[in-house]
Amino acid sequence: MTAAASSPDPIARPAEDDLRFALMDLALSYLFPAALRAAAALGVADHLADGPRPVAELAGAVGADPLNLHRVLRLLATRGIFTEDDAGRFALTPSAELLRTDVPSSFAPAVLMITDTTFWRPAGELEETVRTGRTPFDRLFGMPFFEHFARDPETAAVFHVGMASMSDPENPVVARAFDLPPDATVVDVGGGHGGLLLSVLREHPDARGVLFDQPHVLAGHRLGELGADDRWDLAEGDFFTEAPPGDAYLLKRILHDWDDEHALRILRQCRRAVSDRGRVLVVDAVVPPGNDPDPGKVIDLLMMSSFTGRERTRADFDALFARAGFRLTRVLPTDTRLSIVEGVPAT
């Protein structure tokens, strides 16, 4: 054996199963959503609909630097998003198909919303949020999230289209997971463009619906797709100060935007307006106890960084409902990442 061969390696390399590698990989994992956003924003998947293409040709089609596009797609391919063949051509995978904008199930708008600067920048300042208990959104954007949202049509469009992309596959599943009183009036509180209410009215043909939101949001409503305009109404207003009368109040991804005091104000308006036979149906993640991974624990940090809200446990909802004059009756699982927390007026 030569002296060179027997000399110790000057760099101490940890074994592949060393926990330092796991921590390093976790610290670098923000680059995956960055790459995913780049691919979605460039519309790469749309240009692969007809089959594999060389990266130089693909770069020309999307207006990108060939080398850098290759590097982004190469990383995404390690997660099953796109695939590269031996000839250097990239092709769609089932996950990448969802990034096409010309398919009904397109998830590209949801990706662009979740990775939008309104979420990305505050998440980068999470240390400030943990230290102060306040979101840095106001400092970064000059105003709270929903004020920025109302004033900036571009941000509003990203949010509404992205929410529809994320919610449309969930809505029919959620609508089938609960029952309603006969001939119920369903109020979709902060219901956006009405995707959930559409599914509810289709699933419950004897129900009537009221889409309740702010005027600039209702302007983009989709309820005309129902084909039965006599079964729904629009109601403009502020859910902190009022709610239309009804029998069932849907709040999908509404309460998690707000701290307990603001969430309580919303629920109290529902309690004042609800009929004696009515109920409130909060559609949100319900965070389970224990150390197991759960999507709600991830989204909770998104709420913490850009909003004032949070994801809640069953016990959290129980306490919140009681303060608002409701009694939590059950938590209904759905075949989505959301549950339905049901409450009835407390006697």
Results as ranks from 00 to 15, higher is better:
13 R>D: 07
15 A>Q: 04
22 A>F: 14
24 M>E: 09
24 M>K: 02
25 D>M: 07
27 A>T: 10
29 S>F: 12
34 A>F: 12
38 A>N: 04
39 A>F: 04
43 G>H: 01
44 V>L: 01
46 D>N: 03
46 D>V: 01
47 H>C: 11
47 H>K: 12
59 A>R: 00
65 D>W: 00
68 N>A: 01
72 V>K: 01
74 R>S: 01
77 A>L: 00
77 A>T: 00
88 G>V: 01
91 A>E: 14
98 L>P: 06
101 T>E: 09
105 S>Q: 15
107 F>A: 14
108 A>G: 00
124 G>I: 05
130 V>E: 04
130 V>I: 15
135 T>A: 11
145 F>R: 08
166 M>F: 15
168 D>W: 15
169 P>D: 10
179 D>Q: 02
180 L>G: 06
188 D>G: 06
215 P>W: 04
217 V>S: 08
219 A>C: 11
219 A>I: 14
219 A>Q: 15
227 G>N: 00
230 D>S: 09
231 R>L: 02
237 G>Q: 02
239 F>E: 01
240 F>G: 02
251 L>P: 07
254 I>Q: 11
255 L>D: 05
257 D>F: 11
276 D>A: 11
287 V>G: 02
289 P>D: 06
292 D>C: 04
303 M>R: 09
304 M>S: 13
306 S>G: 12
326 F>R: 03
330 R>D: 04
335 D>T: 09
344 V>C: 04
345 P>Y: 10
346 A>I: 03
